[in-house]
Design a protein around this nucleic acid. Structure first.
Lengths: 162, 162
DNA sequence: TATTGTTATACTCTATAACTATA
DNA sequence: TATAGTTATAGAGTATAACAATA
């Protein structure tokens, strides 16, 4: 189960192909989606397939690496997931031995999620693979342009640290 | 059927909330996903809910507006959809009276997809709503920054017209 | 034999509602 | 009563395989 998908060949033809983008050229959501297709292929190659991690699982791993013992509620908020969705996600990764849930001492309604040593090892491996992936992904931009892109995306959502 | 979803309130708390993004701060795919959440909310408010159009349906409408009589194969390529997925999408929109498929004279395997007058009217309405949406969405950026963001996203995927 | 589009099928993603337990 | 997490259920999205017609 969870068979790794097909090996996904190299950079395919630009998504738009022969057609005129028309009004979509000025629609940010569409351009973000196009870029996400591109990023998704790089992700599958570098992380998804070799490490058998879905994008959300990878994000969760990175988030826990930086925020050990977080409550599910905060994780769901950060990943923009519904509470039930996060629960099944945690179930799956706990069953895989990557993380563990324990009861909180302060508020006994909530829980604390932590990476197991195995989860930490995978997180480090994934973080390393991510660095390689980023290089390949951003190869068409100068370092300055890459940094600018990150800053603009962040600013767009009203998040600090520009 | 196709009941419009909940009215989705104003700009909610930044997705990351209280947690540290950790390594994700440098992962383009994650930052694109965060921005897409933001864009998706604006889309639902301005277009999705009022016009009862899913993102793909909106994109298809815009694409047909600029490329009347396109073949399904080209549409699928431009939208990064599988052929079966596009078929059901076209079925749904044809049933709704927005477009029509006809046989091609040159190659009788393929077909030509065209907007009906009703589809054209909705496309124009959607394009107008998109312009309003973009203004709200890009309000945190200067016009120059907005243009730069579009250019960088395009360059990232190796698409021309920078 | 290769290609276009379609149908059938199944699996993943994601949301809502209902339930349990704490506060 | 409000909140955190879970369970159950359903629906939307998406992929693969099998098929039909045409090239």
């Amino acid at each position: 189960m969870t068979a790794p998908p097909a090996p996904d060949d190299d950079d395919r033809a630009p998504a738009t192909g022969l057609l005129d983008e028309g009004a979509l050229a000025q629609v940010l959501g569409y351009q973000l989606a196009q870029a996400s297709v591109h990023a998704g292929r790089a992700y599958a190659r570098s992380i998804g397939t070799p490490l058998e991690l879905r994008p959300v699982e990878f994000s969760l791993l990175m988030l826990l690496q930086a925020n050990d013992g977080s409550a599910p509620k905060h994780l769901a908020g950060a990943l923009a997931l519904s509470a039930p969705h996060l629960t099944v996600l945690l179930d799956r990764m706990e069953e895989r031995g990557l993380l563990a849930r324990s009861d909180s001492a302060q508020d006994r309604r909530t829980r604390e999620v932590r990476l197991t040593p195995q989860g930490q090892a995978l997180a480090e491996q994934a973080a390393e693979a991510a660095r390689t992936m980023e290089q390949a992904l951003l190869q068409r931009l100068t370092p300055g342009e890459g940094a600018l892109l990150f800053e603009l995306l962040r600013k767009l959502c009203g998040r600090p640290r520009c």
